[in-house]
């Protein structure tokens, strides 16, 4: 028993919360398979979760970076909508090509990052207020760019959107006895690459470690010789850049531009990060956890939908309940751990 509690003490906050998240996700998925029937056994169900949430994974990665550094960015949903609309208008009305539209997405993200990062890091304004204004601005600009929602008809873009990457060996035989391949969209590949990149960044680079240091304790980070302002600045740039990329992936998934796109995406991203064990106080968090956070969030949405509780309000209530449980569990676990260390 004492061995276990020793291990418990030795675990870092990040790993402890990560373990909770991963265990909960697998329990939930197994529960879904047991109680909801065979739908969840099909690999394609899982891949569909990835397909619909590729953009959210990317957004949540950015969100986690900022949250680890001790900030927050609620403009990511707005940036997603703005990127979708700008790219849609450029592709359809201006007859542009796909590569340039990707560049536009990245530039919008970068511009957002520079402005917000500067205001937060160098002018010491609360990140919440800055990104709140950023969200307002992005939503408003989306309307100014174009008010009416429309589908993009650009051939090259549609071809790219329809591209399916077949996952070998995961297909299933459907009711007609025909073999159907399991597939993922391009966005999923992008999202996975970003998850791996960000994981490596946080774990093995100097910048990544200084994110944790600044989030954990600004004063100590400063004494260690870390440039706190620059670190904060870079975290916001990375987050907004990822929001730009995530916006394009979202655009690639839906293939249209609309003001209402990605409504509430920022809250979902924050929720996924929290479920994934990132703490808003900063200094604690993990990208793999965030990835599982997104999966948990969307799995519970799927469970609710397939349980026949398809009235819209159940989704909101279950997500909120889950968020509540996770927050309370986190808070209790951390308080206990602190007490254990004190003893």
């Amino acid at each position: 028993m004492s061995k276990i509690s020793n291990k418990f003490k030795d675990m870092t906050d990040t790993n402890l919360l990560l373990t909770i998240t991963v265990v909960v996700f697998f329990l939930m998925y197994i529960g879904a398979i047991v109680f909801q029937g065979k739908g969840f056994l099909k690999p394609q169900t899982f891949f569909n979760i990835l397909n619909t949430n590729a953009a959210l994974i990317i957004l949540s990665c950015g969100m986690s970076l900022v949250m680890i550094t001790g900030g927050i960015d609620i403009s990511v949903g707005g940036v997603t909508a703005l990127v979708s609309m700008c790219c849609a208008v450029y592709l359809d009305f201006k007859g542009g090509n796909v590569a340039v539209s990707m560049l536009i997405a990245i530039l919008i993200g970068l511009a957002y990052g520079v402005v917000q990062g500067f205001l937060v890091a160098y002018l010491d304004i609360q990140p919440f207020i800055v990104s709140l204004a950023g969200m307002f601005f992005a939503r408003g600009m989306t309307t100014i760019v174009n008010t009416n929602p429309f589908n993009v008809a650009n051939e090259k873009f549609v071809a790219l959107k329809e591209t399916r990457i077949i996952v070998p060996g995961m297909g299933t035989v459907n009711k007609l006895g025909k073999y159907v391949d399991a597939y993922v969209e391009i966005g999923v590949i992008v999202a996975l690459i970003i998850v791996i990149l960000m994981f490596c960044l946080l774990r093995w680079t100097k910048l990544g470690r200084s994110f944790y240091a600044v989030g954990g304790n600004k004063q100590s980070a400063l004494m260690l010789g870390i440039n706190v302002k620059k670190t904060k600045f870079l975290s916001h740039i990375l987050c907004s850049l990822l929001a730009g990329i995530g916006g394009y992936v979202y655009f690639l998934h839906v293939g249209s531009g609309a003001v209402t796109h990605a409504q509430g995406a920022e809250m979902n991203a924050i929720a996924s990060s929290i479920i994934g064990g990132t703490m808003l106080t900063g200094g604690v968090g993990n990208i793999i956890g965030t990835f599982f956070g997104v999966l948990s969030l969307s799995t519970i949405q799927n469970i609710v939908a397939s349980a026949g509780l398809d009235q819209a309000w159940w989704t909101g209530i279950t997500i909120a309940a889950m968020l509540c449980i996770f927050l309370v569990v986190q808070s209790v676990v951390m308080a206990r751990k602190k007490r254990a260390i004190k003893k």
């Binding site: 927050i72 919440f128 809250m267 924050i270 929720a271 929290i274 808003l280 106080t281 819209a312 309000w313 159940w314 989704t315 909101g316 209530i317 997500i319 909120a320 309940a321 968020l323 509540c324 927050l327 309370v328 808070s331 209790v332 308080a335």
Partner: peptide, 27 residues
């Protein structure tokens, strides 16, 4: 209670009601 007893940051604690509130109202 979430903020004061469980020491959750207010923005995150109220995120719960923000997500569920309108659903509860409709319900």
């Amino acid at each position: 209670v979430l903020v004061s007893i469980f020491k959750i940051q207010p923005m995150v604690a109220t995120l719960i009601l923000y997500t569920a509130g309108r659903s509860i109202a409709a319900w």
